[in-house]
């Protein structure tokens, strides 16, 4: 028998079952705002998009049910396959270097010291800059005669057309987003590294393990969960990237930077094919869920908890 404070200030004595019911009601009430938020801003749009993906809807009149037509069309659409390939290259090209570089920077920065604290703060500056502002800055950096070509000149290399050469433009975007997200990944990995128990390193040192051996045999395995988190947000972020292509290259040259979110946007808001764009969004969502599950499958276990 437990005393439960009820709404009107009365104190009542309830059985175990009654208490569970009351707690359930209270829990439900507390969860209600989050449930409403989830329902209105996630579930409804998701269900709408899922429904639209089976329709032909040109932003006028009512959507017309077409079954799997949009999905069939996607298979035949060379624009979709081009953007899927571009997205895959963009994701691989930005995620792997970002994480490797972030880890390389985080290891020394995770050590105590005032200078390291300042450097960690500085690393975050690009991450907190709005992506639109970043894109404008990098447009200047990549201009003919801009800082990027000046750096190449100092290295004795010929200038390149960063944003108009179809073989380079995608990598120009990759460099920009790597620079942008590096600081955030460094901070997350630094936090993970600082949480690792020093006693393990002390034991390894006593056993004669050097810094390289300790890094690969202790740091990386113990940091798996943090790495998994960084990997998942990096992959999801890269596969949803839209602004760099929209602002720096407009998907060009010759479709070389037309990532899937940009192609979806074109279909939705330039061609007014909302049904087809929704179908692509569903495919992208499914792909992200599968990729995230695979990442969890391979990297979970062990951990830096």
């Amino acid at each position: 028998m437990t005393a439960v404070q009820l709404r009107l200030g009365r104190t009542a004595t309830l059985s175990g079952q009654g208490q569970r019911r009351a707690e359930g009601r209270a829990g439900g009430l507390l969860a209600l705002p989050a449930a409403i938020y989830f329902g209105v801003f996630w579930l409804l749009p998701f269900l709408s998009a899922a429904y639209l993906s089976f329709t032909r809807y040109d932003l006028a009149g009512m959507p017309e049910w077409t079954g799997l037509d949009n999905y069939r069309k996607m298979v035949e659409d060379p624009g979709f396959w081009n953007s899927a390939q571009v997205t895959a290259a963009y994701t691989a090209g930005s995620v792997i270097p970002s994480i490797v570089l972030a880890l390389a920077i985080a290891v020394p920065l995770s050590k105590p010291g005032r200078l390291n604290g300042v450097l960690r703060g500085l690393m975050m500056i690009p991450a907190v800059m709005p992506l639109v502002a970043t894109s404008v800055v990098w447009r200047i950096i990549y201009a003919d005669g801009g800082p990027a070509n000046a750096v190449l000149g100092l290295a004795g290399l010929a200038p390149v057309s960063w944003l108009t050469d179809d073989g380079i433009a995608l990598w120009a975007l990759v460099i920009m987003v790597t620079w942008k997200h590096l600081g955030l990944f460094v901070i997350i990995l630094t936090a993970g590294l600082q949480g690792l128990p020093p006693s393990v390193y002390e034991a390894a040192a006593l056993d004669g393990a050097g810094p390289v051996r300790a890094f690969f045999s202790i740091t990386v395995p113990l940091l798996r969960r943090t790495l998994l988190f960084v990997l998942v947000i990096a992959v999801v972020g890269s596969m949803q990237a839209f602004i760099p292509a929209f602002l720096l290259t407009g998907g060009g040259p010759a479709g070389a930077t037309e990532v899937l979110p940009y192609y979806m946007w074109s279909n939705a808001f330039a061609f007014e094919r909302m049904g087809y764009a929704s179908a692509m969004a569903m495919v992208l969502l499914a792909l992200l869920v599968v990729l995230s599950l695979v990442q969890f499958r391979f990297l979970r276990g062990g951990g830096d908890e």
Partner: peptide, 12 residues
């Protein structure tokens, strides 16, 4: 858009 893709592709 399709014509731009075609034109840009041959130009590049």
């Amino acid at each position: 858009k399709a014509l731009t893709d075609a034109g840009d592709a041959v130009a590049h």
